[in-house]
Simulated scan of single mutants.
Amino acid sequence: MIAPVGGSASHMMKAAVFLLFALLVPAYHTGDQCIDNSIDAKVQAAISNIVITNLAKAKLLCQDVSASGDLVSCPAGYKPTGCACGMGCGSWDIRSDSICHCQCGGMDWTAARCCRVGLE
């Protein structure tokens, strides 16, 4: 017995679509994506090793500076972490991100603790 033409074509189309999905889906999930994931993992591992190595070498480098008057500047690349004032003055502020300023009048000296992060 011969099947109707429409039914056979419909079955052939369904089979072709099924075969297409059967071939493409595994290729997509195991092909480029797998390679991309492998490359991503290796890059992340390399970056992590570099960061860990450099963090282990990081060190806080500090120095004290002082000057007469009510202002003292930290050297280039250093930031003040604290200030001290002469004549028993305890009021100070940090100006322009690198200058210690004692707020009392007639200041005889000002000192700063200046620090930066460096590598050994």
Results as ranks from 00 to 15, higher is better:
Ala45Pro: 11
Gly106Met: 05
Leu24Pro: 04
Cys102Ser: 00
Ala9Lys: 13
Ala58His: 01
Leu119Gln: 13
Cys34Gly: 08
Gly90Leu: 01
Gly82Asp: 11
Gly86Trp: 05
Ile39Cys: 04
Val17Thr: 08
His101Lys: 06
Gln33Tyr: 15
Leu60Asn: 04
Ala3Ile: 11
Pro4Asn: 11
Thr81Arg: 14
Ala76Asp: 06
Gly6Trp: 11
Asn54Phe: 05
Asp97Arg: 13
Lys57Val: 00
Gly106Val: 04
Met1Val: 10
Ile50Met: 12
Cys74Ile: 06
Phe18Pro: 00
Ala111Thr: 07
Asp64Ile: 13
Ser68Arg: 04
Cys115Lys: 12
Asp97Pro: 07
Ile47Phe: 06
Leu20Gln: 11
Ala22Phe: 05
Ala58Phe: 06
Arg113Trp: 00
Val25Ser: 04
Met107His: 05
Gly90Lys: 00
Val51Pro: 09
Asp40Phe: 10
Phe21Gly: 13
Asp70Pro: 02
Ser68Lys: 08
Asp93Gln: 13
Met13Ile: 14
Gln44Asn: 15
Ala9Gly: 09
Asp97Leu: 14
Gly69Tyr: 01
Ser8Arg: 13
Lys42Asp: 09
Ser10Gly: 01
Ile52Cys: 03
Thr110Val: 00
Met87Ser: 05
Ala111Trp: 02
Asp32Asn: 08
Ala46Ser: 12
Leu19Val: 08
Leu24Glu: 12
Val65Tyr: 02
Gln44Arg: 15
Gln44His: 15
Ser48Ala: 13
Ala16Gln: 11
Gly106Asn: 06
Asp36Pro: 02
Ser68Tyr: 00
Ala58Arg: 12
Lys59Asn: 15
Ala67His: 15
Lys57Arg: 13
Leu19Ser: 04
Gly31Phe: 11
Asp40Glu: 07
Ala45Thr: 15
